[in-house]
């Protein structure tokens, strides 16, 4: 084993995450490599400092109380107070909306498995976009600028509009790759929640929106005019449905 490669292995060994065979092999290497031994000591120092300094942040009592209070307001046994009445009404409306959407999903042309897989891939791409690091794209609230940037890189043209007046502020656009092909992504913001709208060309016929959730994110997917759209966010599903209507009526 060469030491360059071992840089990362040391940490895997230190964390007891090597396979039994690799672990034994690495122990042999340690017997005559002082560099690796020194690196292990460094790992020890870091772990020891972190654990002995008591910097673990325990939840304050107030937070525990607030969370329990939130939970209680979720429970159906709670008294029927005025604000809760609105809360339940909203919950029923949301439930109805989802039921309608799910009903439509049943009429989808493609299998649920395919849809689930695709949703998984899109949610992963959404999560990737939240990761630190540079994104290739264009940051602009001007629909024409974003469209110009995307059109130059895609084989199909899409309409790009800023719906800031309706509460969906355009943040920009970028390219992503899914299932091996380029897809356009429009980024909107809704009450502080980023929404990614993935857009790609399809041969399939138009569909009504279908919705789902995954890893704490919701998605709404639809097809119109040989283009498929999938909006993903941790914003409310109702917001995604609003954005779907705005995009559909503007295209």
């Amino acid at each position: 084993m060469d030491c360059e490669h071992i840089c990362t292995i040391i940490h895997v060994y230190f964390d007891h995450e090597l396979s039994a065979a690799s672990d034994a092999k690495f122990k042999l290497h340690l017997e005559h490599c002082s560099d690796c031994v020194a690196d292990l000591d460094a790992c020890d120092l870091v772990r020891d400092s972190l654990q002995r300094s008591h910097i673990y942040a325990h939840a304050p009592a107030l937070l525990q109380r607030n969370i329990r209070a939130d939970l209680r307001s979720f429970a159906p046994t709670t008294a029927w107070s005025q604000p809760l009445w609105w809360y339940w009404l909203a919950a029923v409306a949301a439930l109805l909306f989802v039921t309608i959407l799910l009903g439509r999903v049943g009429h989808g042309l493609r299998g649920d498995d395919y849809q689930a897989e695709l949703a998984g891939e899109i949610v992963d791409a959404h999560v990737r976009s939240l990761q630190p690091g540079p994104l290739t794209g264009i940051a602009s609230d001007d629909g024409r600028i974003v469209k110009g940037w995307l059109d130059a890189k895609l084989k199909f043209a899409i309409a790009v509009r800023n719906f800031a007046n309706e509460g969906f502020a355009l943040q920009g656009g970028r390219l992503d790759v899914m299932e091996g092909r380029s897809v356009a992504v429009l980024v909107y913001e809704r009450n502080g929640h980023p929404i990614n709208v993935f857009i790609w060309r399809t041969r399939e016929p138009d569909t009504s929106p279908r919705a789902g959730s995954r890893q704490g994110f919701q998605w709404v997917d639809w097809r119109k005019g040989k283009i498929e759209f999938c909006a993903v966010s941790d914003a409310d599903l109702v917001d995604l449905e609003k954005l779907h209507q705005l995009i559909s009526s503007s295209a």
Binding site: F74, P76, A91, A94
Partner: peptide, 14 residues
């Protein structure tokens, strides 16, 4: 879609 029934709430708490 936001409500939890009593059983689920207990499970959530635990």
């Amino acid at each position: 879609m936001n409500d939890l029934d009593a059983e689920n709430r207990l499970r959530f708490e635990q």
